[in-house]
Nucleic acid binder design. Structure first.
Lengths: 158, 158
DNA sequence: TCAAATACCAAGTAAAGCACTCGGTATTTA
DNA sequence: TAAATACCGAGTGCTTTACTTGGTATTTGA
């Protein structure tokens, strides 16, 4: 997997759609201005999103983009996969026969980790994020009840 | 943040240390052979890990690397941050004053998401992964009791 | 009917990062 | 003293990122 600024651009742009497409489609020019990224680059990202049917374009003046399906049916993982391409995780995962068994041990561990990350991102929908923001606006900065620290491990590295 | 093969190399290498450094230090030549990545590239990764004191090198014949601290005090986030550099998440996070407030809305949402991902990775230590693997070896492929699907959002994209 | 606004498309580009090579130096063990 | 290791820096080909340029297709509305 890859989780970088490209995915961030896509996610924030999709959030924009989720927040504003009630009063008509949102133009890329709008998003470009708001987020400060190039229009053509956005077009390229949206071409990828459209290919996965995460957005729907409307041409002509007054046109723009809508979400391709309801916001609660689009996960963060969907978006990131669409633009970043979900690259292979391990070199030997499944198919390739690992010689010494040793090698596959750490690989299977990493495999499990990435599976957990994937599931984590799959379980967060655009609707979740919008809703969460609205809740916060009303109730005022409620603390993190969704992720409670389950166990040990160190703090942020220097 | 960035979550790619470079981070994977570092994590699997650290897992190797966690698993094998009881009988002496682990050499990079070993890891290089096992994981099939270049020795010099490993050296560069370990230079970064060493800078963050996640590993400790021992020179001379019979030398190699130990973990810099106990495995339960090293999180996956620590490792990935060390090699991948935790790049800025939002352009305006905190310091830069966002003009219309609009822009900062999606930014704060993304900010929260990335914070959750970070916490998620922080909460998994090397010891957790090793322990989990041992448990699985003994008890035989126990299912995912650590991550239960909390709510909606769609499945894996085509 | 025509100009403007939008989506859509393809090619190219500079800079950065990735994974690697090469050629060393420093330190420790046997 | 030779070998094995960590440690170090410069350079290289490739891919990706973020962007630019220059279009075409479609729809609105004046």
């Amino acid at each position: 997997m890859r989780l970088s600024t490209k995915g961030r651009y896509a996610v924030t742009a999709m959030l924009d759609l989720a927040l504003h497409s009630e009063d008509g489609p949102v133009t890329l020019a709008d998003i470009s201005a708001k987020q400060g990224i190039s229009l053509s680059y956005l077009e390229q990202l949206f071409a990828l999103l459209r290919a996965k049917q995460l957005v729907r374009g409307v041409r002509g003046p007054g046109g723009g983009y809508y979400l391709g399906r309801p916001a609660d049916e689009i996960s963060i993982a969907d978006i990131i996969c669409a633009v970043d391409e979900w690259v292979e995780f391990t070199r030997c995962s499944g198919k390739e026969d690992c010689r010494d068994g040793e090698r596959c041990l750490t690989h299977s561990l990493w495999n499990e980790l990435s599976e957990r990350i994937y599931r984590f991102l799959t379980d967060i929908s655009l609707a979740d994020m919008v809703e969460r923001d609205e809740v916060r606006e009303v109730a005022g900065k409620q603390e993190d009840d969704l992720v409670e620290p389950p166990r040990k491990a160190s703090g942020r590295a220097a």
